[in-house]
Amino acid sequence: MLTIFETIEKIAIKIDHAIKTEDLGYSDTENTSGEDQLKLDVKSDYIVEEAFKNVSIVKALVSEEKEGVLALHDEGKYTICYDPLDGSSLADVNLSVGSIFGIYEGELKAENLVASAYVVYGPRIELVTATRDAKPKHYRAQEGLFNFISEISLDEKGKLNAPGGTQQNWSKVHKTFVDGLFAEGYRLRYSGGMVPDLHQILLKGGGIFSYPGTSDKPNGKLRQLFEVIPFAFMYEQAGGQAISNEGVRLMELIPAHPHDTSPCFFGSNYEINKLKEAYGMKV
């Protein structure tokens, strides 16, 4: 596992350099969801693929930017599902973006996730890693080396509210829930980037990030293997919760297809329990 994390560190430095120097325009290709790809998406995907080609314990790669599974090493143990540059459309306005990695052993389902990691590319490069039976670990890059900062723990209750999706497409239940949090004094923190928003909630001690099922995307927008499950693991390891709109732990998801999506809610215990009450779930 250490070899994989060390490889992610090298990837992070290269992607950060690409963000700072490469063309920010669109390529002439689409990803598997039919979305136009930015040149940065393609470049970042290439950087990840090239880096893991030399890591023998990695059996295969599954990218948010490509269809199917890329086999690497028959003797490998792990499959890495990754989003090479989440929120890439924010790069041209100089907002933080990130990379997400889910490390699976065996069949690609949540219970087989053994570790996850994400990188934030902002004013500084930051890395957070999580493994079983340990709190997530926070690192910051300095002169190309990642220095350990601290373990991450969520408080029982936070102050931040990051509601995703277009409001006109929310259900009445969800809108009432979000408005209720603001009435309690919660602060809006939503950049349109999953990685920086979830990172902020983790580092600031708590709150909630929600991306519900909406009228235009009833199954949610965020992809299970690349985005939802890796962060669900992070939040549970930090002492929080991560659930679907039906109250199911996201760490129980079994994707039928590599690019399946799910409504998702990540937060500290107070906010998730309040969400369950609003949605009529068992607390």
Score class of each variant (00 low, 15 high):
238 A>N: 02
147 N>S: 06
113 L>Q: 09
278 A>G: 01
92 D>C: 04
253 L>Q: 12
246 E>Y: 15
4 I>G: 00
120 V>G: 02
169 N>Y: 04
141 A>D: 05
151 E>D: 14
114 V>N: 05
63 S>K: 06
43 K>Q: 14
141 A>N: 11
202 L>T: 06
113 L>F: 11
159 K>E: 13
276 K>C: 00
79 T>Y: 00
30 E>M: 06
69 V>G: 05
228 V>T: 15
237 Q>Y: 07
147 N>D: 09
260 D>L: 13
267 G>F: 00
232 A>E: 07
37 Q>I: 11
16 D>A: 14
23 D>V: 04
165 G>F: 14
219 N>Q: 15
201 I>M: 08
37 Q>Y: 05
93 V>P: 05
240 G>R: 00
84 P>S: 10
188 L>Q: 15
84 P>C: 08
226 F>Y: 15
233 F>V: 01
74 D>V: 13
53 K>L: 01
226 F>T: 14
125 I>Y: 11
40 L>Y: 10
76 G>P: 06
68 G>N: 11
206 G>M: 05
190 Y>H: 13
245 N>T: 06
68 G>W: 12
76 G>E: 04
273 N>W: 04
165 G>V: 10
223 R>W: 07
28 D>G: 07
63 S>I: 13
187 R>F: 11
171 S>Y: 05
88 S>D: 03
201 I>T: 09
265 F>K: 04
115 A>C: 07
32 T>H: 10
43 K>H: 08
259 H>R: 04
10 K>E: 14
101 F>A: 00
180 G>I: 05
143 E>T: 09
204 K>T: 13
231 F>A: 02
132 R>A: 07
190 Y>K: 07
103 I>N: 01
140 R>D: 06
216 D>W: 12
118 Y>Q: 04
206 G>Q: 04
119 V>T: 03
244 S>T: 15
194 M>R: 14
207 G>K: 00
248 V>D: 14
60 A>S: 13
111 E>R: 12
69 V>N: 04
262 S>R: 02
20 K>L: 11
65 E>K: 01
252 E>N: 14
190 Y>Q: 13
61 L>C: 08
222 L>W: 08
155 D>Q: 12
29 T>I: 04
97 V>L: 02
278 A>W: 02
195 V>L: 11
201 I>L: 04
79 T>L: 02
228 V>E: 09
13 I>L: 10
15 I>P: 01
28 D>V: 09
261 T>R: 09
264 C>S: 14
191 S>H: 12
258 P>Y: 15
109 K>I: 13
18 A>N: 12
14 K>T: 11
200 Q>P: 00
87 G>S: 11
177 F>Y: 15
230 P>T: 10
144 G>Y: 12
275 L>I: 05
271 E>M: 09
32 T>Q: 08
178 V>S: 00
55 V>L: 04
207 G>L: 02
46 Y>S: 12
114 V>E: 10
80 I>M: 14
113 L>D: 06
186 Y>T: 10
5 F>D: 03
134 A>G: 12
58 V>W: 01
84 P>H: 11
268 S>D: 02
10 K>V: 02
283 V>Y: 11
181 L>N: 05
155 D>E: 14
100 I>H: 08
209 F>L: 03
243 I>T: 13
245 N>K: 15
3 T>I: 10
64 E>P: 03
262 S>K: 01
221 K>S: 13
281 M>G: 06
169 N>P: 05
131 T>F: 08
49 E>G: 03
212 P>Y: 08
46 Y>C: 00
125 I>W: 02
251 M>W: 09
103 I>E: 00
127 L>H: 01
